[in-house]
Design a protein around this nucleic acid. Sequence first.
DNA 1: CAGTGGTCTAGACCACATT
DNA 2: ATGTGGTCTAGACCACTGT
Lengths: 249, 249
Amino acid sequence: MTDATTPGVPLSAPLYKEIKRELMAALTAGEWKPGEAIPAERRLSERYGISIGTVRKAIDELVAENILIRQQGRGTFVASHTRDRLLFYFFHIVPQAGDKSYPDVEFVRFVRGKADREMAKHFGIAVGEPVFRARNRLRLAGVPVMIDDITVPAVRFPGLSLAQFRDRPSTIYNLYQEAFGISVVSTSERLRAALADAEFATLLSITPGAPLLQIRRLARTYNDVTVEYRVSQVNTQHHEYWAEIGSNA
Amino acid sequence: MTDATTPGVPLSAPLYKEIKRELMAALTAGEWKPGEAIPAERRLSERYGISIGTVRKAIDELVAENILIRQQGRGTFVASHTRDRLLFYFFHIVPQAGDKSYPDVEFVRFVRGKADREMAKHFGIAVGEPVFRARNRLRLAGVPVMIDDITVPAVRFPGLSLAQFRDRPSTIYNLYQEAFGISVVSTSERLRAALADAEFATLLSITPGAPLLQIRRLARTYNDVTVEYRVSQVNTQHHEYWAEIGSNA
DNA sequence: CAGTGGTCTAGACCACATT
DNA sequence: ATGTGGTCTAGACCACTGT
């Protein structure tokens, strides 16, 4: 009656935070899958025996974190990593002139490897534990613009194969979600300018020594768990990296 | 009784959006200044004759847009462009190793000029209208890392002088706010990799042809009005641009 | 039409900060 | 002690979506 989870009097954490955690737990347990609707707010308020306003506040936060999506009149859905959403949220390369468009992804290679010190630290695994490494080349309007080098810990993607990676029906993050139940919800990126070496110059059809934008991305799922490390090399001759800060969009 | 602003039955826009607009109007009219507290939520609910929950929802959005800041037990304050806030929100250059720190700003020049086609479009003014242009050099840990070329429309910064710009007591955005009542609340940045020309190489103590990260920033105040255009050249030898996407932070 | 999320009310009480 | 924002309730009604 007086412990921290008693709904009557919130002693430590607010009730809506508890509910948020409950929803997250149900989500990670697979009770509702990406693309599906979660129960209506009224039903959730009955299920947890709380007011509807409190349910809404919990959902509000999950919506703000891109985990749920509200649609008036239809319901509240588990965010699905469709092409459109990913393009909007996680793909930040835009033409210097013209509209944002989908990249054409070209498979280059897929290999097994071992985690070095840095990877181990990011993924929370031991040095030497298995990882998968893949390389893609991305084209925009037919022109090669970007090389992606992706590293993921094998422990979170058991049995990921070259064929599975190369022949996936949709985006990479959609594969993570559909095949491994991992939803990428946030990323952290660090950018610097570099010069193209012979290898990247060839892949991007530019001259060695040309300037390249280098992006190092950590992708995280729920609870800030890092699930992917990605280094991108971008030819910014005709494209740019786009960042919006503090906008309500 | 049936027009759009009748509080009884919201016909067009939600009531809290109306209240938000009212608060914004009071803010731009200078009723409450940066750093000051706005009236308590209970008082605002009386003032507008609405429920406290509706006031809270209006304030919620202004807080999300960095226009107001809530502090439990103390009040709700108009966001002030202090050093700390600016460093956190709008300065994205961090060392590759070590903690984020304040840049030392070194004044280089300040001149009057005329708006070209691009500036005119961004600022919503006519080609040839007066603008101010300024250049700063920023040092981190004593080392020159970044050159900022700033352009602002004279019409929004009447009488801005070299001395005022150079000898400002705090940050540039703080000057905009204190001297001209302009609060920068959002920015849009486009990044590309380039090669240092002779001029930038000298200013940054690097060799011509070294890679530079070029950032073009549009800074906006309330209602998406663009008030500053800034081009930065960053030596990313030991520093990086940092971007966080979809994080709840 | 029934069901969903979105808005709004009128209050109670809690947690925190200042006097 | 007083005043502030933060949480929570129980319900009414609106706007939108699908059948």
